[in-house]
């Protein structure tokens, strides 16, 4: 077992142990924080596929996070109002079933990522960063000025979505759902990176000319990775909407894109558990520094600067050494 695997297992156990301990000690707030870590980690795992393995620096993943959230919010609010979502050509009802909401969120985000990715991948380098940002901003301003689902004020969801056989309103149960999904997407990530596709994706990042010369078009590989990446981040958005029982245009804002990026970079770009380590550290810092001073973001900024300048490879790189999958 490599040192990184040990660190990864320790991280997963820690994320599981903290809320279970909090359950016995009766600290529901800590369970909510852990749930947030799990959800942000899922978003980060999604971005890591594009950014870490594919080298596609997307500064617009808030678009998928928000779309997933709004998919959940809109379906739930229509179900609660007993108003069909679409009446023509056939009637579609809203729903509060997670097992329906998740596939819908995945499909919507996949379709959006396909369109955004296909157009953005025509550019490269810094232009790619900026065009992904532009698409996210487009949706952000649309969400603000579109009045049907709350516009700038956002949309409250009065009931948490249901999962067959489970009481999702119980914090520890909801955490368990998010944790299980996190493990699932991490497992998917492992399969992906070790598959032929994963190797092609790595090759597309390192040397697109060579990949082309062996008969694989980098564009298709990168676009597929971008779509998968957007879908996973969208799933996280749907969970986040359920956690807060509220969605707002802030989910689309460029701060959200920046934060998801921070989770990935803080933990270690291209490291399997990097997003989890990064999200956990971010939430922990937010909580701890927020207790010290009202201006905790000042300290967070300073700390981030030091990490970028002096601790390359992120938290996992610091703990486990080596170069990871980059």
């Amino acid at each position: 077992m490599t040192r990184e695997t040990t660190v990864n297992i320790a991280l997963a156990i820690a994320l599981l142990a903290v809320p279970i301990g909090a359950q016995f000690a009766d600290h529901p707030f800590i369970i909510t924080l852990s749930t947030k870590v799990a959800i942000f980690a899922i978003a980060g795992v999604g971005l890591n596929i594009a950014l870490g393995y594919g080298g596609l620096i997307s500064f617009g993943h808030a678009a998928f996070f928000g779309l997933g959230g709004y998919a959940a919010g809109i379906l739930a609010s229509q179900a609660l109002n007993y108003e069909p979502l679409v009446t023509w050509p056939f009637e579609i009802q809203g729903t509060t079933q997670m097992l329906i909401i998740w596939p819908v969120a995945l499909c919507i985000c996949g379709a959006a990522a396909l369109v955004i990715g296909a157009m953005s991948l025509r550019t490269g380098g810094v232009y790619f960063i900026m065009i992904t940002l532009a698409f996210a901003q487009m949706i952000y301003y649309f969400a603000i000025s579109w009045p049907a689902y709350g516009g700038e004020d956002g949309l409250s969801i009065y009931v948490r979505s249901k999962f067959p056989g489970l009481n999702t309103l119980d914090p520890i149960t909801f955490f368990a759902i998010c944790f299980a999904l996190l493990i699932a997407v991490l497992g998917f990530s492992v399969l992906l990176t070790h598959s032929r596709f994963g190797l092609a994706l790595s090759a597309a990042r390192q040397n697109p000319q060579r990949l082309t010369s062996v008969g694989v078009r980098p564009f298709q590989v990168q676009l597929t990775a971008f779509v998968i990446s957007g879908m996973i981040t969208g799933l996280a958005g749907a969970l986040y909407a359920d956690l807060n029982r509220f969605v707002s245009p802030a989910m689309f804002s460029w701060h959200t894109s920046g934060e998801i990026m921070i989770f990935v970079i803080l933990g270690g770009v291209g490291r399997l558990f990097g997003p989890l380590a990064g999200a956990a550290l971010f939430i922990l810092l937010e909580h701890l520094l927020g207790g010290i001073t009202e201006f905790w973001q000042f300290l967070l900024g300073m700390l981030l600067l030091l990490i970028v300048l002096f601790a390359r490879g992120g938290l996992i790189g610091l703990l486990a050494g080596g170069r990871g999958n980059v």
Binding site: L51, I57, F59, I129, G258, M261, I262, I265, V269, F295, W296, Q297, F298, L300, G301, M302, L304, L305, V308, L309, R312
Partner: peptide, 16 residues
């Protein structure tokens, strides 16, 4: 990537 993150951190420092 490093430039984006470091200058994002600078924004936090300046704003706060």
């Amino acid at each position: 990537l490093d430039q984006v993150l470091a200058t994002f951190a600078l924004i936090l420092v300046f704003s706060e």
